[in-house]
């Protein structure tokens, strides 16, 4: 039973840790499917986290915080669009720029406005998204096996967790069952064809980037308003890049993205859980190896040893109307 409880705990923290990855990964999916590389997921999450926590603590409302997180994150996505769609700049350079601006401005504005070393004030419980206890969760807790699964894994998360996991089927539906999704995929593969059909390539890509901004905003809000009761500098800590890795791992497909993020979240949860404890057979695994595992896995995948990941064809190439 101890082992079972341990497994449940690891799985529970897997869910908590994979949510920001999942949201960022889906965010990247929208933009990359539309043919815009987005290295700036990290930065957009960071500004989202900061704006969310700052607004929530000033206005004492979690939902206003979330709204502000989305708003600022979308604004940054639009800067990326302005540089890479309107001015046909290098998308990677623009993404890198956004990461820097985000990293610097969140700390500086945080320090100037709240004077807590780049942090935002600790959020009170009504300024955060609390856990939602599903009906009967407490009553069923005692039931063996199913009880803990229901009350720990399924119930007891904040609303953003459910939003993240609902975003997966929603994204699938948008991508593969709507006109917008079809066009978005087309613009990522062959923008000239979309243009010939009389549809604006730029406007389509901008809309995709707005979706990206919304999702990274939610991801940031999750970090600062659910996982942590306030903003801490550099709190994204490379999650944007892991999300990018997960996106490649998932071959740009929403359902795969969920599993990739759960896998990376699981590795993270496991490395926290196993810190210092020796494993059977392998012996003691260095924590650093566990932490590096998502990156190593991505490199191996990219090398084509676990199936080939083929990116959208027009990805990274600015669209020039006439030739």
């Amino acid at each position: 039973m101890d082992l079972f409880n341990a497994v449940i705990q690891v799985l529970d923290s897997t869910i908590r840790l994979s949510v920001p990855l999942l949201l960022a990964c889906l965010a990247g999916l929208y933009s990359e499917r539309a043919g815009i590389f987005d290295i700036g997921l990290e930065g957009k999450m960071l500004v989202g986290a900061f704006a969310g926590a700052a607004a929530a603590s000033v206005f004492h409302s979690a939902y206003l915080g979330l709204g502000m997180a989305i708003l600022i994150s979308v604004a940054f996505a639009l800067i990326h669009g302005f540089a890479s769609i309107t001015h046909r700049g290098n998308q990677i350079v623009s993404g890198v720029a956004i990461n820097f601006i985000a990293a610097g401005s969140t700390i500086m504005l945080g320090q100037a406005w709240f004077q807590q070393g780049g942090r935002t004030p600790a959020l009170a419980s009504d300024e955060r998204f609390g856990a939602i206890i599903w009906p009967g969760a407490d009553a069923l807790r005692g039931v063996p096996i199913l009880g803990p699964i229901y009350s720990e894994l399924i119930s007891g998360h904040s609303v953003l967790v459910y939003v993240a996991f609902l975003a997966v089927p929603f994204t699938w539906w948008v991508l593969f069952r709507t006109r917008f999704g079809l066009r978005m995929r087309a613009v990522g593969e062959n923008p000239a064809a979309v243009d010939t059909a009389g549809i604006s390539v730029a406007w389509l890509r901008y809309r995709a980037l707005i979706c990206t901004g919304v999702l990274t905003g939610i991801a940031g809000a999750y970090l600062s308003m659910v996982q942590n009761g306030g903003f801490v500098k550099d709190m994204t800590a490379g999650k944007g890049y892991i999300a990018l890795a997960a996106l490649i791992f998932a071959k740009w497909k929403p359902v795969n993205a969920m599993f990739a993020c759960l896998l990376f979240g699981f590795l993270d949860a496991l490395s926290i859980r196993l810190q210092g404890t020796p494993l059977p057979v392998i012996g003691k695994v260095p924590v650093q190896l566990m932490q590096a595992l998502p990156y190593i896995l991505t490199v191996i995948l990219l090398a084509g040893f676990i199936g080939k990941a083929i990116p959208p064809r027009a990805g990274g190439v600015p669209y020039v109307k006439e030739r």
Binding site: Q91, I101, A103, G104, M108
Partner: peptide, 25 residues
């Protein structure tokens, strides 16, 4: 005191944005 060293990171980002991504603006 209101300006921390992170101001440089912002400037760095802005330089990358304007000299790199928006170089033809």
């Amino acid at each position: 005191p209101a300006i921390s060293r992170d101001m440089i990171v912002i400037i760095q980002g802005l330089v990358i944005l304007f000299a790199g991504a928006l170089e033809h603006m």
